[in-house]
Design a protein around this nucleic acid. Structure first.
Length: 618
DNA sequence: TTTCGACGTCTTTTT
DNA sequence: GACGTCGAAA
C-alpha cells in the first residue's frame, strides 16, 4: 500500500484527507493539482469508499482518464471510479432517465450541425434576405449558446456581448424560438441542451436527484474556473444532498469566457455550499523562479489583482526567459526550427518541447518549416479532423441510420450528388423520387436493417463515398487517409449510437493514431486553450503581437482583454526550464503589409525587467 | 436549379 | 484564407 503522506506536502495532504463536506481548492499553476486529485481518489478508495460512489468531473475526458489512470496504478480499484466531462455525464444521465422528461431517442447536434440547424431557421424566417446587417448564423448560434450557458435573457446577452445587434432583438428572439422548436421536432439536443436538460431532469425529478446524490457520494470537479453557470448548477444539484463536493481551480487561469464560463463561479462556490473549507496551493513545483517572475509580472496589469503570487519550490535558478523579435514569420520559423534541433542535442527531446499560440493559423509557417526539416510534430487545437468536410460527409450517412429523422444529415447526403442542390435535396426529403437519390437511400436502408459491425458499416459507406470524394476534392488522397483513420476508430465500437455520441462528445484529437508502433517522440504544437494543464521543459509562445495576443476583437472590452492576459499567463506557466516569447513585426493580413507592435502585455517595464531581449531581424 | 467565379467581410478559443 | 452573396451561364 502506498503511503500518501510521503508523496505530497502538508497542504496537499490536508486536501486529500478533507473528504467530508464542501471544499474549495485554489490551486495555482504547477502546484501539483493533478497529483492531489490522484491521491485524493486513492485515499477515498483506501478508506473503503466503493469506487462507484466517486465521481470526477473534468474539462476533457482525457484529463479524467489521466488522473484515474495514475490513481489506479497505486490501487487497481481506482479504475472503476467514474469520470468524464459535464457533457458526457449529462448525456449518460439523459440516456438512462431522459424518458421521464420526454427525451427518448434523441441525437446530439455537434457544433457544425447546430450551425446548419440555425441556418435552416434563418432561411425559413427570411430575415437575412431583406437586411444585410442581420447577424449571421455563427453569431446567432453563439448568442443562443451564451443565453443558455449563462442562464440569462437574450437582451442581456446582446447588451453585454453583441451591442451591434440590439436593434434586432425581437427577430433574434423569434429565431431562438424557431431553433428550439426545430430541435424539439427532430429530437435533437445540442451541446448546451445536454446540460440544460440534465438540470431539467434533476430539478423536476426530485427523487431521482436524491438518488443520484446518494449514488455519487463524493464529487470532485476540476478546472472549476472554467465552468459556466449551467455547470455550477449541475454541480449543486448533484452535491446538495451530501455536500461532499470538492471544486479545484485557479481564477488566474480562467480562459473560457467565450463559452459562458466565469471566474466569478469559483468565488461563488462557498456561497452555494455553506461551511465550505478553502485551501490554497501556492508552491509551484513546475517552473523555476525566473519564469514565474514573468508570469507574476503579466498579472500585475490586471484591474482586479489576484491574491496569489507563484513561488518556485526549486532551488535551482534557471535562465532568464527570452523575448525574440523577428522581421517576418519566415525567418522566425527558420530560427525556431534550428533552435528546436539544438535543444534536442542538449538533451531536450522533441517530446519535451512545445510551441504554443493563441490562434492556430499563427503556426502555419512554422509547420511548413518543420515538415521541410523532417521534424515530427503533432498539432492540437484549431481545425480538427472531425470538422473537415469529408469526415462530416461520411458520418452523415451513419447519422441517418441511427436517426432517420435527421434532416440535416439527409441534406448533406443528397447535396453531394451531382446536379442536386439545396432545393432538390429538400424535395427529395419531402418524398420526391429522384433516381440518383435512390441508390443512397437503398444502401442506407439495407445497412440499417442488417446488423453489421460499425467498422463494416462505415467501410461500406466509404466504398460508396470514394468516387464522390475524388470528384469533390483536389487533395482527395490526403483526405482519404483521414477516412482510414475513421475506419480504425470505428472498429472499436459495437453500437452505432454510442459511436456517434462519443464522436460528438469526445472527438479524437488527431487524424491518425500515427503508426502506433513507431510512437516516436514528437514535438507538440498547440493552442494555448488546448495546452491547459500540461507542461514541457521548453516552451515557445508565438505571436506576441498586439492584435494576435491580445486578439484584435477583444480590444473593445476590458473583461475580454483580461482574459487574453490570463491566456498569456497560462502559456508562460507551462514552461519548466526554458521559455521563449516570440514576435515578428512584419505581418501580412487582408492584402496589405501591416506592422505589428509588440503585445501590450509585455510592453511594460515590470514585465520587460524579467526578460532578456534578443532582436533578430532578417 | 445548379454551378462557378468574383467580390466583400470577418478573421479565435471548445464541449 | 474561409465563407457568404450575387450575377451569369449551363
Amino acid at each position: 500500500m502506498v503511503d500518501i503522506r510521503e508523496k505530497i506536502n502538508k497542504t496537499q495532504l490536508q486536501i486529500v484527507e478533507s473528504t467530508e463536506g464542501p471544499l474549495l481548492v485554489v490551486a495555482g499553476a504547477g502546484s501539483g493539482k493533478t497529483r492531489v486529485i490522484e491521491y485524493r481518489v486513492l485515499h477515498l478508495i483506501q478508506k473503503g469508499i466503493p469506487a462507484h460512489q466517486i465521481l470526477l468531473l473534468t474539462f476533457t475526458r482525457r484529463a479524467a482518464q489521466e488522473m484515474l489512470l495514475r490513481a489506479s496504478r497505486h490501487d487497481r480499484r481506482c479504475s472503476a471510479v467514474e469520470g468524464g466531462t459535464f457533457h458526457s455525464f449529462s448525456y449518460k444521465l439523459l440516456r438512462q432517465y431522459g424518458n421521464r422528461i420526454g427525451l427518448k431517442d434523441f441525437s446530439i447536434l455537434d457544433e457544425a450541425d447546430a450551425l446548419d440547424a440555425v441556418n435552416v431557421c434563418l432561411k425559413e424566417s427570411g430575415y437575412a434576405v431583406s437586411d444585410k446587417d442581420f447577424p449571421r448564423k455563427d453569431y446567432l448560434r453563439k448568442m443562443f449558446s451564451m443565453q443558455v450557458n449563462k442562464r440569462i435573457s437574450l437582451d442581456k446577452v446582446l447588451e453585454d456581448e453583441y451591442p451591434d445587434f440590439v436593434d434586432y432583438q425581437s427577430q433574434i428572439e423569434e429565431l431562438g424560438k424557431r431553433y428550439k422548436n426545430y430541435k424539439k421536432s427532430k429530437q435533437y439536443l445540442d451541446y448546451d441542451d445536454l446540460l440544460a436538460e440534465a438540470i431539467n431532469l434533476l430539478t423536476q425529478e426530485k427523487v431521482l436527484c436524491n438518488h443520484m446524490g446518494e449514488r455519487y457520494n463524493y464529487l470532485m470537479v476540476d478546472e472549476y474556473q472554467d465552468t459556466n453557470p449551467l455547470q455550477a448548477e449541475l454541480t449543486f444539484l448533484l452535491g446538495k444532498t451530501h455536500c461532499n463536493v470538492m471544486a479545484v481551480g485557479d481564477d488566474a487561469q480562467s480562459i473560457y469566457g467565450f463559452r459562458g464560463a466565469s471566474h466569478r463561479n469559483i468565488m461563488e462556490f462557498p456561497q452555494k455550499f455553506p461551511g465550505c473549507k478553502i485551501l490554497k496551493l501556492e508552491a509551484n513545483y513546475r517552473s523555476h523562479q525566473k519564469i514565474l517572475d514573468v508570469a507574476n509580472a503579466v498579472l500585475l496589469n490586471m484591474r482586479n489583482k489576484y491574491s496569489k503570487c507563484l513561488k518556485a519550490v526549486q532551488a535551482h535558478i534557471g535562465e532568464v526567459p527570452q523575448l525574440l523579435i523577428f522581421r517576418g514569420d519566415r525567418s522566425e520559423a527558420e530560427w525556431i526550427t534550428e533552435k528546436i534541433q539544438s535543444l534536442k542535442h542538449q538533451g531536450f527531446d522533441y517530446q519535451k518541447q512545445a510551441i504554443l499560440f493563441r490562434s492556430a493559423y499563427i503556426s502555419i509557417p512554422l509547420q511548413a518549416q518543420l515538415s521541410r526539416m523532417g521534424i515530427p510534430f503533432q498539432v492540437y487545437g484549431g481545425m480538427k479532423f472531425y470538422e473537415t468536410a469529408h469526415v462530416k460527409d461520411l458520418l452523415a450517412h451513419l447519422k441517418v441510420m441511427a436517426n432517420p429523422a435527421d434532416d440535416i444529415s439527409w441534406m448533406r447526403i443528397f447535396t453531394l450528388l451531382d446536379g442536386v442542390g439545396p432545393k432538390t435535396a429538400g424535395k427529395i426529403i419531402a418524398g420526391f423520387k429522384h433516381p440518383k437519390a435512390k441508390e443512397v437511400t437503398d444502401m442506407i436502408k439495407d445497412f440499417s436493417q442488417e446488423k453489421k459491425k460499425i467498422g463494416q458499416l462505415l467501410s461500406g459507406v466509404a466504398d460508396y463515398y470514394y468516387p464522390l470524394l475524388k470528384e469533390k476534392f483536389e487533395d482527395w488522397r490526403q483526405r482519404s487517409s483521414d477516412i482510414d483513420a475513421l475506419l480504425e476508430i470505428a472498429e472499436n465500437y459495437d453500437s452505432l449510437v454510442e459511436f456517434l455520441a462519443d464522436f460528438a462528445l469526445d472527438p479524437p484529437e488527431k487524424a491518425v493514431n500515427q503508426d502506433a508502433n513507431k510512437k516516436q517522440e514528437t514535438l507538440t504544437l498547440s493552442t494555448i486553450h488546448s495546452a491547459k494543464g500540461l507542461e514541457w521543459d521548453c516552451v515557445f509562445v508565438l505571436g506576441l503581437m498586439d492584435g494576435v495576443l491580445p486578439v484584435s476583437f477583444s480590444l473593445s472590452n476590458d473583461e475580454r482583454i483580461e482574459e487574453e492576459m490570463r491566456l498569456l499567463y497560462v502559456a508562460i506557466t507551462r514552461a519548466k526550464v526554458k521559455l521563449h516569447l516570440v514576435a515578428h513585426y512584419e505581418g501580412f493580413s487582408s492584402g496589405t503589409n501591416q506592422f505589428h507592435k509588440i503585445s501590450r502585455f509585455l510592453d511594460s517595464p515590470a514585465v520587460m525587467a524579467h526578460l532578456s531581449q534578443k532582436a533578430i531581424f532578417e
